[in-house]
Design a binder for these strands. Structure first.
Lengths: 203, 203
DNA sequence: GAACATTGTGCAGAGCGTGCAATAATCGAT
DNA sequence: ATCGATTATTGCACGCTCTGCACAATGTTC
Protein backbone atom coordinates (compact mmCIF):
# COMPACT_ATOMS: atom_id res chain seq x y z
CA UNK A 1 0.00 0.00 0.00
CA UNK A 2 1.34 3.44 -0.92
CA UNK A 3 2.44 6.06 1.61
CA UNK A 4 -0.73 8.09 0.99
CA UNK A 5 -2.76 5.34 2.56
CA UNK A 6 -4.45 4.81 -0.77
CA UNK A 7 -4.04 1.40 -2.35
CA UNK A 8 -3.64 0.79 -6.06
CA UNK A 9 -7.18 -0.42 -6.36
CA UNK A 10 -8.58 2.63 -4.69
CA UNK A 11 -6.58 4.96 -6.90
CA UNK A 12 -7.56 3.14 -10.08
CA UNK A 13 -11.15 3.26 -9.09
CA UNK A 14 -11.00 6.98 -8.50
CA UNK A 15 -9.25 7.51 -11.82
CA UNK A 16 -11.71 5.39 -13.75
CA UNK A 17 -14.65 7.23 -12.27
CA UNK A 18 -13.07 10.55 -13.17
CA UNK A 19 -12.31 9.24 -16.66
CA UNK A 20 -15.88 8.21 -17.28
CA UNK A 21 -17.14 11.52 -15.98
CA UNK A 22 -14.80 13.44 -18.27
CA UNK A 23 -15.77 11.27 -21.23
CA UNK A 24 -19.47 11.87 -20.62
CA UNK A 25 -19.02 15.63 -20.41
CA UNK A 26 -16.77 15.72 -23.46
CA UNK A 27 -19.19 13.76 -25.58
CA UNK A 28 -22.14 15.83 -24.40
CA UNK A 29 -20.32 18.97 -25.53
CA UNK A 30 -19.49 17.40 -28.87
CA UNK A 31 -22.75 15.75 -29.83
CA UNK A 32 -25.42 17.10 -27.49
CA UNK A 33 -26.43 15.30 -24.33
CA UNK A 34 -29.25 13.18 -25.68
CA UNK A 35 -27.31 11.95 -28.68
CA UNK A 36 -24.79 10.36 -26.34
CA UNK A 37 -25.24 6.70 -25.40
CA UNK A 38 -23.72 4.69 -22.60
CA UNK A 39 -21.86 2.70 -25.22
CA UNK A 40 -20.21 5.86 -26.59
CA UNK A 41 -19.18 7.01 -23.14
CA UNK A 42 -17.78 3.61 -22.24
CA UNK A 43 -15.76 3.40 -25.42
CA UNK A 44 -14.44 6.93 -24.97
CA UNK A 45 -13.41 6.10 -21.42
CA UNK A 46 -11.89 2.76 -22.38
CA UNK A 47 -14.12 0.50 -20.35
CA UNK A 48 -16.96 -1.88 -21.12
CA UNK A 49 -20.57 -0.68 -20.99
CA UNK A 50 -21.12 -3.03 -18.13
CA UNK A 51 -18.35 -1.36 -16.17
CA UNK A 52 -19.95 2.02 -16.69
CA UNK A 53 -22.82 0.84 -14.55
CA UNK A 54 -20.45 -0.23 -11.84
CA UNK A 55 -19.59 3.44 -11.42
CA UNK A 56 -22.75 5.36 -12.26
CA UNK A 57 -26.44 4.50 -12.38
CA UNK A 58 -26.99 6.48 -15.58
CA UNK A 59 -25.37 9.04 -17.85
CA UNK A 60 -26.89 12.01 -16.04
CA UNK A 61 -25.05 11.06 -12.88
CA UNK A 62 -21.84 10.57 -14.85
CA UNK A 63 -22.12 14.00 -16.40
CA UNK A 64 -22.64 15.92 -13.14
CA UNK A 65 -20.24 13.92 -11.01
CA UNK A 66 -18.39 15.96 -8.42
CA UNK A 67 -17.30 15.93 -4.77
CA UNK A 68 -19.83 14.39 -2.42
CA UNK A 69 -18.28 15.08 0.95
CA UNK A 70 -16.14 17.40 3.02
CA UNK A 71 -12.46 16.61 3.26
CA UNK A 72 -12.14 14.61 6.42
CA UNK A 73 -9.33 16.64 8.03
CA UNK A 74 -11.16 19.92 7.63
CA UNK A 75 -14.33 18.35 8.92
CA UNK A 76 -12.49 16.94 11.93
CA UNK A 77 -11.11 20.36 12.84
CA UNK A 78 -14.56 21.84 12.44
CA UNK A 79 -16.11 19.29 14.74
CA UNK A 80 -13.31 19.60 17.26
CA UNK A 81 -14.03 23.30 17.70
CA UNK A 82 -16.93 22.12 19.80
CA UNK A 83 -20.47 23.33 20.45
CA UNK A 84 -21.39 26.94 19.80
CA UNK A 85 -24.41 29.05 19.01
CA UNK A 86 -26.05 28.28 15.65
CA UNK A 87 -24.95 31.58 14.15
CA UNK A 88 -21.32 30.86 14.97
CA UNK A 89 -21.53 27.36 13.61
CA UNK A 90 -22.93 28.72 10.37
CA UNK A 91 -20.10 31.23 10.16
CA UNK A 92 -17.49 28.53 10.72
CA UNK A 93 -19.17 26.29 8.20
CA UNK A 94 -19.14 28.90 5.45
CA UNK A 95 -15.47 29.51 6.17
CA UNK A 96 -14.79 25.82 5.93
CA UNK A 97 -16.62 25.53 2.64
CA UNK A 98 -14.85 28.57 1.22
CA UNK A 99 -11.46 27.21 2.19
CA UNK A 100 -12.22 23.90 0.59
CA UNK A 101 -13.41 25.69 -2.53
CA UNK A 102 -10.23 27.73 -2.66
CA UNK A 103 -8.03 24.68 -2.24
CA UNK A 104 -9.61 22.51 -4.88
CA UNK A 105 -11.66 24.73 -7.15
CA UNK A 106 -13.66 23.05 -9.91
CA UNK A 107 -12.97 23.86 -13.55
CA UNK A 108 -14.99 26.86 -14.56
CA UNK A 109 -15.60 25.40 -17.99
CA UNK A 110 -16.93 22.15 -16.55
CA UNK A 111 -19.11 23.98 -14.10
CA UNK A 112 -20.46 26.15 -16.87
CA UNK A 113 -21.31 23.20 -19.05
CA UNK A 114 -22.90 21.24 -16.24
CA UNK A 115 -25.18 24.11 -15.27
CA UNK A 116 -26.01 24.62 -18.94
CA UNK A 117 -26.86 20.95 -19.38
CA UNK A 118 -28.96 21.04 -16.24
CA UNK A 119 -30.82 24.00 -17.61
CA UNK A 120 -32.00 22.24 -20.73
CA UNK A 121 -32.23 18.62 -19.60
CA UNK A 122 -34.51 17.96 -16.62
CA UNK A 123 -32.82 14.66 -15.93
CA UNK A 124 -29.45 16.33 -15.60
CA UNK A 125 -30.90 18.93 -13.27
CA UNK A 126 -32.35 16.17 -11.14
CA UNK A 127 -29.02 14.36 -10.98
CA UNK A 128 -27.21 17.56 -10.06
CA UNK A 129 -29.63 18.40 -7.31
CA UNK A 130 -29.43 14.87 -5.96
CA UNK A 131 -25.68 15.06 -5.82
CA UNK A 132 -25.84 18.42 -4.13
CA UNK A 133 -28.28 17.04 -1.64
CA UNK A 134 -26.04 14.11 -0.83
CA UNK A 135 -23.33 16.59 -0.01
CA UNK A 136 -25.77 18.59 2.08
CA UNK A 137 -26.75 15.55 4.09
CA UNK A 138 -23.13 14.80 4.87
CA UNK A 139 -22.47 18.37 5.90
CA UNK A 140 -25.55 18.35 8.10
CA UNK A 141 -24.26 15.22 9.83
CA UNK A 142 -20.92 16.90 10.49
CA UNK A 143 -22.64 19.98 11.85
CA UNK A 144 -24.85 17.80 14.00
CA UNK A 145 -21.82 16.04 15.39
CA UNK A 146 -20.23 19.30 16.39
CA UNK A 147 -23.40 20.56 18.01
CA UNK A 148 -24.12 17.32 19.81
CA UNK A 149 -27.41 16.83 17.98
CA UNK A 150 -28.94 14.11 15.88
CA UNK A 151 -28.08 14.07 12.15
CA UNK A 152 -31.73 14.53 11.22
CA UNK A 153 -32.25 17.39 13.66
CA UNK A 154 -33.68 20.52 12.09
CA UNK A 155 -31.00 22.93 13.25
CA UNK A 156 -27.96 21.30 11.65
CA UNK A 157 -29.96 20.63 8.52
CA UNK A 158 -31.06 24.23 8.22
CA UNK A 159 -27.51 25.41 8.80
CA UNK A 160 -26.19 23.11 6.10
CA UNK A 161 -28.97 24.09 3.72
CA UNK A 162 -28.38 27.78 4.13
CA UNK A 163 -24.63 27.51 3.69
CA UNK A 164 -24.94 25.30 0.64
CA UNK A 165 -27.58 27.52 -0.89
CA UNK A 166 -25.01 30.27 -0.86
CA UNK A 167 -22.41 27.98 -2.39
CA UNK A 168 -24.75 26.84 -5.12
CA UNK A 169 -25.89 30.35 -5.96
CA UNK A 170 -22.35 31.68 -6.01
CA UNK A 171 -21.09 28.83 -8.17
CA UNK A 172 -23.94 29.29 -10.61
CA UNK A 173 -23.20 32.94 -11.12
CA UNK A 174 -19.47 32.27 -11.37
CA UNK A 175 -20.11 29.66 -14.02
CA UNK A 176 -22.10 32.15 -16.05
CA UNK A 177 -19.59 34.99 -15.86
CA UNK A 178 -16.95 35.62 -18.47
CA UNK A 179 -13.52 34.52 -17.28
CA UNK A 180 -11.38 37.48 -16.25
CA UNK A 181 -7.60 37.47 -16.44
CA UNK A 182 -5.98 36.44 -13.18
CA UNK A 183 -9.34 36.33 -11.43
CA UNK A 184 -10.77 32.90 -11.93
CA UNK A 185 -11.79 31.79 -8.47
CA UNK A 186 -15.35 31.04 -7.47
CA UNK A 187 -14.61 32.18 -3.93
CA UNK A 188 -15.59 35.86 -4.27
CA UNK A 189 -18.86 34.83 -5.86
CA UNK A 190 -19.75 32.57 -2.99
CA UNK A 191 -18.67 35.22 -0.48
CA UNK A 192 -21.00 37.62 -2.18
CA UNK A 193 -23.90 35.20 -1.87
CA UNK A 194 -23.12 34.65 1.80
CA UNK A 195 -23.14 38.39 2.39
CA UNK A 196 -26.47 38.78 0.59
CA UNK A 197 -27.91 36.00 2.67
CA UNK A 198 -27.00 37.82 5.84
CA UNK A 199 -28.59 41.03 4.62
CA UNK A 200 -31.71 39.01 4.03
CA UNK A 201 -32.33 37.79 7.52
CA UNK A 202 -30.54 40.42 9.55
CA UNK A 203 -31.61 43.76 8.10
CA UNK B 1 -66.66 26.47 -20.98
CA UNK B 2 -67.46 26.07 -17.30
CA UNK B 3 -67.76 29.01 -14.89
CA UNK B 4 -64.38 28.18 -13.37
CA UNK B 5 -62.66 29.13 -16.57
CA UNK B 6 -61.49 25.56 -16.85
CA UNK B 7 -62.58 23.63 -19.91
CA UNK B 8 -63.50 19.98 -19.95
CA UNK B 9 -60.21 19.02 -21.52
CA UNK B 10 -58.22 20.85 -18.92
CA UNK B 11 -60.12 19.26 -16.09
CA UNK B 12 -59.80 15.77 -17.51
CA UNK B 13 -56.13 16.25 -17.98
CA UNK B 14 -55.69 17.34 -14.41
CA UNK B 15 -57.72 14.39 -13.18
CA UNK B 16 -55.83 11.88 -15.28
CA UNK B 17 -52.51 13.17 -14.04
CA UNK B 18 -53.70 12.96 -10.46
CA UNK B 19 -55.03 9.47 -11.13
CA UNK B 20 -51.72 8.24 -12.47
CA UNK B 21 -49.87 9.80 -9.56
CA UNK B 22 -52.18 8.13 -7.06
CA UNK B 23 -51.84 4.80 -8.83
CA UNK B 24 -48.06 5.01 -8.79
CA UNK B 25 -47.95 5.80 -5.09
CA UNK B 26 -50.49 3.12 -4.24
CA UNK B 27 -48.62 0.44 -6.12
CA UNK B 28 -45.31 1.50 -4.63
CA UNK B 29 -46.80 1.07 -1.16
CA UNK B 30 -48.21 -2.31 -2.08
CA UNK B 31 -45.31 -3.90 -3.94
CA UNK B 32 -42.24 -1.76 -3.29
CA UNK B 33 -41.15 0.95 -5.67
CA UNK B 34 -38.82 -1.05 -7.86
CA UNK B 35 -41.22 -3.91 -8.37
CA UNK B 36 -43.66 -1.51 -9.98
CA UNK B 37 -43.62 -1.17 -13.76
CA UNK B 38 -45.06 1.50 -16.01
CA UNK B 39 -47.45 -1.09 -17.33
CA UNK B 40 -48.79 -1.79 -13.83
CA UNK B 41 -49.27 1.88 -13.11
CA UNK B 42 -51.02 2.46 -16.41
CA UNK B 43 -53.40 -0.42 -15.89
CA UNK B 44 -54.15 0.68 -12.34
CA UNK B 45 -54.89 4.19 -13.57
CA UNK B 46 -56.95 2.98 -16.50
CA UNK B 47 -54.85 4.36 -19.32
CA UNK B 48 -52.46 2.91 -21.86
CA UNK B 49 -48.75 2.73 -21.14
CA UNK B 50 -48.18 5.14 -23.97
CA UNK B 51 -50.47 7.65 -22.30
CA UNK B 52 -48.49 7.41 -19.09
CA UNK B 53 -45.59 8.98 -20.93
CA UNK B 54 -47.77 11.82 -22.12
CA UNK B 55 -48.05 12.82 -18.47
CA UNK B 56 -44.77 11.85 -16.85
CA UNK B 57 -41.28 11.13 -18.12
CA UNK B 58 -40.82 8.19 -15.74
CA UNK B 59 -42.30 6.54 -12.68
CA UNK B 60 -40.20 8.56 -10.24
CA UNK B 61 -41.80 11.76 -11.45
CA UNK B 62 -45.24 10.18 -11.25
CA UNK B 63 -44.67 9.11 -7.67
CA UNK B 64 -43.55 12.49 -6.35
CA UNK B 65 -45.94 14.62 -8.38
CA UNK B 66 -47.19 17.70 -6.57
CA UNK B 67 -47.87 21.41 -7.05
CA UNK B 68 -45.34 23.19 -9.22
CA UNK B 69 -46.39 26.81 -8.90
CA UNK B 70 -47.96 29.42 -6.68
CA UNK B 71 -51.66 30.02 -7.06
CA UNK B 72 -51.89 32.90 -9.48
CA UNK B 73 -54.21 35.10 -7.40
CA UNK B 74 -52.02 34.94 -4.33
CA UNK B 75 -48.95 35.58 -6.43
CA UNK B 76 -50.61 38.58 -8.07
CA UNK B 77 -51.42 40.13 -4.71
CA UNK B 78 -47.87 39.49 -3.58
CA UNK B 79 -46.42 41.18 -6.63
CA UNK B 80 -48.84 44.09 -6.39
CA UNK B 81 -47.61 44.93 -2.90
CA UNK B 82 -44.65 46.47 -4.70
CA UNK B 83 -40.95 46.79 -4.02
CA UNK B 84 -39.64 46.50 -0.49
CA UNK B 85 -36.49 45.65 1.36
CA UNK B 86 -35.33 42.04 0.95
CA UNK B 87 -36.15 41.15 4.53
CA UNK B 88 -39.73 42.34 4.13
CA UNK B 89 -40.14 40.49 0.87
CA UNK B 90 -38.96 37.32 2.54
CA UNK B 91 -41.43 37.83 5.37
CA UNK B 92 -44.28 38.36 2.90
CA UNK B 93 -43.22 35.34 0.92
CA UNK B 94 -43.20 33.02 3.89
CA UNK B 95 -46.66 34.29 4.81
CA UNK B 96 -47.84 33.62 1.29
CA UNK B 97 -46.44 30.11 1.31
CA UNK B 98 -47.94 29.37 4.72
CA UNK B 99 -51.35 30.60 3.63
CA UNK B 100 -51.23 28.45 0.54
CA UNK B 101 -50.16 25.48 2.63
CA UNK B 102 -53.03 26.06 5.03
CA UNK B 103 -55.56 26.33 2.21
CA UNK B 104 -54.57 23.22 0.33
CA UNK B 105 -52.52 21.04 2.63
CA UNK B 106 -51.08 17.85 1.17
CA UNK B 107 -52.04 14.47 2.60
CA UNK B 108 -49.78 13.64 5.48
CA UNK B 109 -49.75 9.99 4.51
CA UNK B 110 -48.72 10.78 0.94
CA UNK B 111 -46.05 13.16 2.10
CA UNK B 112 -44.73 10.58 4.50
CA UNK B 113 -44.53 7.90 1.86
CA UNK B 114 -42.92 10.17 -0.69
CA UNK B 115 -40.19 11.21 1.71
CA UNK B 116 -39.69 7.60 2.69
CA UNK B 117 -39.40 6.53 -0.94
CA UNK B 118 -36.97 9.36 -1.60
CA UNK B 119 -34.91 8.18 1.31
CA UNK B 120 -34.31 4.73 -0.08
CA UNK B 121 -34.46 5.29 -3.82
CA UNK B 122 -31.96 7.82 -5.18
CA UNK B 123 -34.00 8.25 -8.35
CA UNK B 124 -37.06 9.25 -6.37
CA UNK B 125 -35.02 11.71 -4.34
CA UNK B 126 -33.72 13.24 -7.55
CA UNK B 127 -37.22 13.57 -8.97
CA UNK B 128 -38.48 15.14 -5.77
CA UNK B 129 -35.67 17.65 -5.64
CA UNK B 130 -36.19 18.51 -9.29
CA UNK B 131 -39.84 19.16 -8.69
CA UNK B 132 -39.05 21.27 -5.68
CA UNK B 133 -36.56 23.21 -7.71
CA UNK B 134 -39.08 23.89 -10.44
CA UNK B 135 -41.31 25.38 -7.80
CA UNK B 136 -38.42 27.40 -6.46
CA UNK B 137 -37.62 28.83 -9.87
CA UNK B 138 -41.20 29.97 -10.33
CA UNK B 139 -41.27 31.55 -6.89
CA UNK B 140 -37.98 33.31 -7.60
CA UNK B 141 -39.48 34.73 -10.79
CA UNK B 142 -42.46 36.06 -8.86
CA UNK B 143 -40.21 37.61 -6.24
CA UNK B 144 -38.07 39.12 -8.97
CA UNK B 145 -41.13 40.64 -10.57
CA UNK B 146 -42.17 42.27 -7.34
CA UNK B 147 -38.69 43.64 -6.72
CA UNK B 148 -38.19 44.85 -10.27
CA UNK B 149 -35.24 42.54 -10.82
CA UNK B 150 -34.32 39.90 -13.34
CA UNK B 151 -35.59 36.35 -12.71
CA UNK B 152 -32.03 35.05 -12.55
CA UNK B 153 -30.88 37.75 -10.15
CA UNK B 154 -29.24 36.46 -7.00
CA UNK B 155 -31.43 38.28 -4.51
CA UNK B 156 -34.82 36.89 -5.53
CA UNK B 157 -33.28 33.47 -5.92
CA UNK B 158 -31.77 33.52 -2.47
CA UNK B 159 -35.04 34.73 -0.99
CA UNK B 160 -36.94 31.93 -2.69
CA UNK B 161 -34.34 29.36 -1.68
CA UNK B 162 -34.40 30.35 1.96
CA UNK B 163 -38.17 30.38 2.18
CA UNK B 164 -38.50 27.03 0.46
CA UNK B 165 -35.77 25.49 2.57
CA UNK B 166 -37.94 26.25 5.55
CA UNK B 167 -40.96 24.77 3.83
CA UNK B 168 -39.13 21.62 2.87
CA UNK B 169 -37.64 21.14 6.31
CA UNK B 170 -40.96 21.74 8.03
CA UNK B 171 -42.81 19.38 5.71
CA UNK B 172 -40.24 16.69 6.21
CA UNK B 173 -40.52 16.81 9.97
CA UNK B 174 -44.31 16.95 9.77
CA UNK B 175 -44.33 13.89 7.55
CA UNK B 176 -42.26 11.98 10.09
CA UNK B 177 -44.32 12.89 13.13
CA UNK B 178 -47.11 10.78 14.45
CA UNK B 179 -50.50 12.20 13.59
CA UNK B 180 -52.10 13.96 16.56
CA UNK B 181 -55.85 14.28 17.03
CA UNK B 182 -57.20 17.55 15.72
CA UNK B 183 -53.73 18.79 14.94
CA UNK B 184 -52.86 17.62 11.48
CA UNK B 185 -51.63 20.74 9.74
CA UNK B 186 -48.09 21.14 8.45
CA UNK B 187 -48.28 24.87 9.10
CA UNK B 188 -46.87 24.93 12.64
CA UNK B 189 -43.95 22.79 11.51
CA UNK B 190 -43.05 25.18 8.73
CA UNK B 191 -43.49 28.14 11.06
CA UNK B 192 -41.06 26.52 13.43
CA UNK B 193 -38.49 26.10 10.67
CA UNK B 194 -38.93 29.71 9.64
CA UNK B 195 -38.34 30.82 13.20
CA UNK B 196 -35.22 28.67 13.49
CA UNK B 197 -33.94 30.14 10.29
CA UNK B 198 -34.25 33.63 11.68
CA UNK B 199 -32.41 32.68 14.85
CA UNK B 200 -29.66 31.40 12.62
CA UNK B 201 -28.81 34.58 10.85
CA UNK B 202 -29.98 37.13 13.35
CA UNK B 203 -28.78 35.96 16.76
C1' DG C 1 3.06 -17.68 -3.41
C1' DA C 2 -1.32 -19.14 -1.59
C1' DA C 3 -5.67 -17.88 -0.18
C1' DC C 4 -8.77 -14.13 -0.26
C1' DA C 5 -11.23 -10.05 -1.74
C1' DT C 6 -12.40 -6.91 -5.20
C1' DT C 7 -13.05 -5.40 -9.91
C1' DG C 8 -13.88 -5.96 -15.03
C1' DT C 9 -16.47 -8.07 -18.62
C1' DG C 10 -19.86 -10.71 -21.55
C1' DC C 11 -24.31 -12.34 -21.98
C1' DA C 12 -29.18 -12.52 -21.61
C1' DG C 13 -33.49 -10.46 -20.90
C1' DA C 14 -37.06 -7.45 -18.98
C1' DG C 15 -38.32 -2.88 -19.06
C1' DC C 16 -37.93 2.02 -20.52
C1' DG C 17 -38.87 5.86 -23.44
C1' DT C 18 -39.74 8.06 -28.05
C1' DG C 19 -41.22 8.96 -32.91
C1' DC C 20 -44.88 8.27 -35.85
C1' DA C 21 -49.48 7.87 -37.60
C1' DA C 22 -54.27 6.71 -36.96
C1' DT C 23 -58.43 7.53 -34.33
C1' DA C 24 -61.44 9.89 -31.28
C1' DA C 25 -62.88 13.59 -28.45
C1' DT C 26 -63.35 18.60 -27.35
C1' DC C 27 -63.38 23.38 -28.69
C1' DG C 28 -64.53 27.69 -30.95
C1' DA C 29 -66.85 29.56 -34.39
C1' DT C 30 -70.64 30.17 -37.47
C1' DA D 1 -76.42 22.08 -34.67
C1' DT D 2 -72.60 21.67 -37.58
C1' DC D 3 -68.04 21.98 -39.14
C1' DG D 4 -63.14 22.57 -39.23
C1' DA D 5 -59.28 23.07 -36.04
C1' DT D 6 -57.04 21.62 -32.05
C1' DT D 7 -55.76 18.31 -28.67
C1' DA D 8 -55.75 13.67 -26.35
C1' DT D 9 -55.37 8.50 -26.53
C1' DT D 10 -53.54 4.58 -28.29
C1' DG D 11 -50.77 0.91 -30.83
C1' DC D 12 -46.67 -0.28 -32.95
C1' DA D 13 -41.83 -0.54 -33.68
C1' DC D 14 -37.37 -0.08 -32.25
C1' DG D 15 -33.15 1.19 -29.92
C1' DC D 16 -31.35 2.02 -25.49
C1' DT D 17 -31.14 1.30 -20.41
C1' DC D 18 -30.10 -1.30 -16.51
C1' DT D 19 -29.66 -5.50 -13.72
C1' DG D 20 -28.45 -10.30 -12.33
C1' DC D 21 -25.33 -13.75 -12.92
C1' DA D 22 -21.10 -16.22 -13.76
C1' DC D 23 -16.35 -16.19 -14.51
C1' DA D 24 -11.92 -14.27 -15.51
C1' DA D 25 -8.45 -10.92 -14.16
C1' DT D 26 -6.19 -8.20 -10.88
C1' DG D 27 -4.94 -6.40 -6.25
C1' DT D 28 -4.27 -7.57 -1.29
C1' DT D 29 -3.00 -10.11 2.86
C1' DC D 30 -0.56 -13.31 5.37
Amino acid sequence: MSPTGEGLRERRRRETRQEIHAAALRLARRHGFDKVTIEMISTEAGVSPRTFFNYFPNKEAAAVFGPRELSSEAAAAFVAAGPARPGEVLRDLTRLLLRQLAESPPERRDMHDIFALAHEHPGVLAAMLAQFDTFRTGVAATVAERMGRQPDDEVPNLIASVALTAVRTGLERWSRDEPVDGEDSPVPYVERSVALLHTLLAP
